[in-house]
């Protein structure tokens, strides 16, 4: 897998310049409003507002679509179900509520650097102090996880190849037990290396 990057689209719009915390608060407020809206007409207004926000951000149609795309089949299924079980207006309201919420959340993701978002969320996690997790260890935890994803992905690929070579491709047990054991070995080696690199001192 390639570099782990977020979906951030560089830009200089007012939305880009807002701090991550403000955008998240705004997102929460907008989602609450979306839940309260009932009439299809108000949904149309909401859609217009979201459209304007996207236009202001200048992230482009392709990036916007990439954020909403994952829910497209869900939206279709939900629409069909609502039409059958309820009526057309509530079908329109529910579907647009989900799509608009996802789009807005996507907009925050597109206009906020991964690091800025991570720094903000890290601050939100600071109550973890109470279990002895100081801010330094917390941020190490996040970095170490990003570092470990490709390592675990490689490990999974290797275990799967070994499994194929032994002709036990169908057994989940033959895949997952060696994978989890290797993951634990790796984790404990990593813990030892962190000690060697002075984390305990």
């Amino acid at each position: 897998m390639n570099g782990l990057t977020g979906a951030y689209v560089p830009g200089g719009s007012p939305l880009h310049r807002l701090p991550a915390g403000a955008k998240l608060a705004g997102l929460a407020a907008c989602c609450t409003v979306l839940v309260l809206l009932r009439a299809p007409v108000s949904m149309a207004v909401a859609a217009l507002v979201v459209g304007v926000l996207f236009a202001v951000s200048g992230v482009g149609v392709a990036a916007a679509w990439a954020q909403v795309r994952p829910v497209r089949w869900f939206a279709v299924a939900l629409f069909a179900m609502q039409v059958v079980f309820a009526d057309l207006p509530s079908a329109i309201t529910s579907v647009s509520r989900v799509v608009l919420a996802v789009a807005l959340a996507g907009l925050v993701t597109l206009t906020t650097r991964t690091e800025a978002m991570m720094a903000f969320l890290e601050r939100c996690l600071s109550p973890a102090r109470w279990v002895g997790l100081d801010p330094f260890r917390l941020s190490l935890l996040l970095s170490l996880t990003i570092r470990s994803v490709p390592v675990m992905a490689d490990l999974a690929t290797r275990v799967r190849e070994a499994q194929r070579a032994r002709g036990v491709e169908w057994s989940v047990r033959a895949f997952a037990v060696p994978l989890v054991v290797s993951a634990l070995r790796h984790a404990d080696a990593l813990g030892e290396a962190l000690s060697a690199r002075g984390l305990d001192d």
């Binding site: 970095s143 990003i146 080696a189 290396a193 060697a196 690199r197």
Partner: peptide, 13 residues
């Protein structure tokens, strides 16, 4: 201290 497996020693992305 240098370990055998660098993947277990490199901790930052």
């Amino acid at each position: 201290f240098l370990f055998t497996d660098p993947d277990a020693q490199i901790v930052m992305p």
